[in-house]
Computed example of a mutant assay.
Amino acid sequence: MLAVQRTIRRMCTSVDAPRVTRFSLNAPKNVELEYANGSKFSLSAEFLRVYSPAADGKIRSFGGEKVIFGRRYVGIMSAEPVGNYGVRIVFDDLHKTGIYPWDYFYHLGSNKFSLMRNYLKTLKKHGLSRDPQKRK
């Protein structure tokens, strides 16, 4: 778990992210960010939940590959500032341990389409769905 967090931190700090100038929570659907260089990103709740920087007990592991699935309809309940470096997002599936640094948001926004495409390929590869499992 600690190794994953270190990897994410290293990945985030390797991005030369500009200063964030606006953060807007549009609960439960998405967050919007603007950066000093003019970059603007709208990141959905599902996307943020799937790419949470926290280790999560609701992950299925396939040969060492961690896959979060069934989060298509997850919503954001709140966003709480954490110092000057980021935000803790609380999701309606009760996941609340992910702290998203501003540079990680920038990484996610800058790579949103390739990250989502890779996520969908991974789900397909393992026969999983974005939709939540049906209750019995």
Rank of each mutant, 00 (worst) to 15 (best):
A45C: 08
P132V: 09
V74N: 14
E32W: 03
P18Q: 01
W102C: 05
I59P: 00
F113K: 11
R22T: 04
H95T: 10
S78F: 08
R19H: 11
G83H: 01
P53W: 00
L33P: 02
G63P: 04
Y35L: 03
E32R: 10
G109K: 06
Y51S: 02
G83L: 08
G98V: 10
K29S: 14
V31K: 08
D16T: 13
R72E: 12
R88S: 12
C12G: 15
D131I: 04
E80F: 10
P132L: 08
G57K: 10
K112I: 07
L94P: 00
W102T: 03
H107Y: 15
V74E: 10
F47P: 03
V82A: 06
I59T: 15
M1F: 01
A3L: 15
I68T: 06
G70H: 09
K121R: 14
F69D: 07
Y51P: 02
A45F: 07
F62K: 03
D103I: 00
K66I: 01
T122D: 03
S44H: 13
W102E: 03
D103H: 07
I99S: 00
L128E: 07
T97S: 09
K58M: 11
L120Y: 15
E46M: 11
V74Q: 13
S110H: 09
S14M: 02
F113C: 03
S114D: 12
L123C: 02
L48A: 05
V82M: 06
K58S: 11
A45H: 05
